[in-house]
Design a protein around this nucleic acid. Structure first.
Lengths: 120, 120
DNA sequence: CTAATATGCAACCAAGAGGTTTCCCATGGA
DNA sequence: TCCATGGGAAACCTCTTGGTTGCATATTAG
């Protein structure tokens, strides 16, 4: 087996980091907003802020965070601003986590094989 | 079709939120630490801080964040503290994202079916 | 024993996040 | 037209985050 077969290629995903995406998901309020939006309907800001302990302005800020991370997109309709989910980045994150855990599994497997061959 | 068939069950995952996990992953430094650890070997703090623009103490803080989120665990060996990945929460996050995008897909499908039946 | 190494702890700091309040603008409907 | 409604902007506050420095402690090597 050539050494290059063993090298894991350190999972950088072309330096385009997923950290901002993760950060955008790292807040309870924003996750609950995503839950509401995952029903599939476009919702206005006031609508999303309804039945929330927070102010409309707070919800607005959270929506902007989600928008900057491209987790959510928004279109204007009259005086309303309608938000909806953007399904793509979720897929991107899943791919990243897949790569991470695959690399982890592969490392464990290599380690195990090595240890076994040492003992044979 | 009964209404209960349509209801999406809002994806709460027993109130145990994933926000702290996401937050722990929402930092470039921590992601790069995870990349290093994904090679599968236990690494000491000084080892992980080597070739980093940051101080050892900064790395220590980041490792503690990862530890609190149970993304990483650590064992003491002499005067060293060895960190390694904990593969479980990654799987949990993947499941969560799967649920989210499934719910999103399902909502879209229901919406489409509804629109089509309206036009028939 | 002594020196070097690996880490911990505490104080401190600047910047950002999350939230509120207040006031203003635009639009839709009566 | 007039007013209720949806939303934006800015100022402000507090707590957290990400980082530093300095010093103390424990363990290993010689």
């Amino acid at each position: 087996m050539s050494p290059s077969t063993l090298k894991p290629r350190p999972l950088n995903h072309r330096t385009h980091s997923h950290a901002p995406l993760f950060a955008a998901l790292g807040d309870e309020t924003r996750l609950s907003l995503l839950t509401k939006l995952s029903a599939g309907q476009q919702r206005s800001i006031t609508d999303l802020a309804h039945n929330s302990p927070l102010t409309r302005q707070a919800i607005t800020k959270h929506l902007r965070v989600l928008e900057r991370a491209h987790i959510v997109r928004c279109t204007r309709s009259g005086r309303e601003r309608l938000y909806e989910l953007d399904p793509l980045p979720v897929q991107s994150l899943k791919n990243y986590l897949d790569a991470l855990s695959n690399q982890w599994d592969a490392a464990l497997t290599r380690l195990r094989t090595f240890v076994e061959s040492e003992h044979s």
